[in-house]
Design a protein around this nucleic acid. Sequence first.
DNA 1: TTTAGTGCAAACTCTTTGCAGCTAA
DNA 2: TTAGCTGCAAAGAGTTTGCACTAAA
Lengths: 149, 149
Amino acid sequence: MERSLLKHFIKSRGLRQSSQRDRVVETFLSQKGHTSAEELLIQVRKKDKRVGLTTVYRTLKLLTESGLAVERKFNRQVSTFEPARIGQHHDHLICLGCGKIMEFENKNIETLQEEVARKHTFFITHHVLELYGTCLDCSKKGAKKPKKK
Amino acid sequence: MERSLLKHFIKSRGLRQSSQRDRVVETFLSQKGHTSAEELLIQVRKKDKRVGLTTVYRTLKLLTESGLAVERKFNRQVSTFEPARIGQHHDHLICLGCGKIMEFENKNIETLQEEVARKHTFFITHHVLELYGTCLDCSKKGAKKPKKK
DNA sequence: TTTAGTGCAAACTCTTTGCAGCTAA
DNA sequence: TTAGCTGCAAAGAGTTTGCACTAAA
């Protein structure tokens, strides 16, 4: 069903269909969690060796613009992308020990954000809320160096 | 007073003093708002032409490690740095129209964050909360393209 | 036949590193 | 005299762009 959204987006923009792009979209939408362009390329290439990194980047851009993907940076240089579930906004807990990412939703926080914005006569389009720290597993293992990349 | 913290940090690490670093630190601490390495270099060079970008980067790293600076990325590629005011954590409203950055503090939000963490048995070390949208001025001017960079 | 899509290599942006000379202690 | 500090140039990492070719419509 999400795919029809993209089809519509492609049509409305006068774009064409292509097997590489289809493959990237299909693979992306089947992913759980957060995927970087590089990681997605690896998955895509398992099915089709001919796809290049550039196409993955271009397709992710298209997906983001059409609202099917959400781009996130967390505390790193690389962008990661997550399939957008309509109407399901959420924020993240990021473990600096093992890199695990957990999701949460909290309406009360959102309400307070709106209140803050109102005080500043500011109109929120979107927000970023990321809680960094240590998950249960990592706190048990004791002090551990943050996972690189 | 903040400067004595850095002096202590430098001593404890067995580092040396240098006029370039002093100039960068001095300039940085006198800045309001958020400064990128490039912007800081421009300011520093007004007083001393001999300072290089590398030294600015290295000094900002030192300041961040010693707790005198806080690094922030917002929605851009570049890092910006802000002098850390001890015990004064705050979050940001970022206008996508003009790039203006406003600060706010909200204890209730922080309390709710701790509650979320507790539910997930997660231990927060720090968080990022950024509200993106349109400020009053920009909403008056009507639809305006987001300022690049 | 037209024009979007593709992969490759090159360019780009921001940041870090290697290095040889400089300088504080 | 011994390292840390410096600027420069080069290297890195992640992403975007230019280009000639391919292929959908």
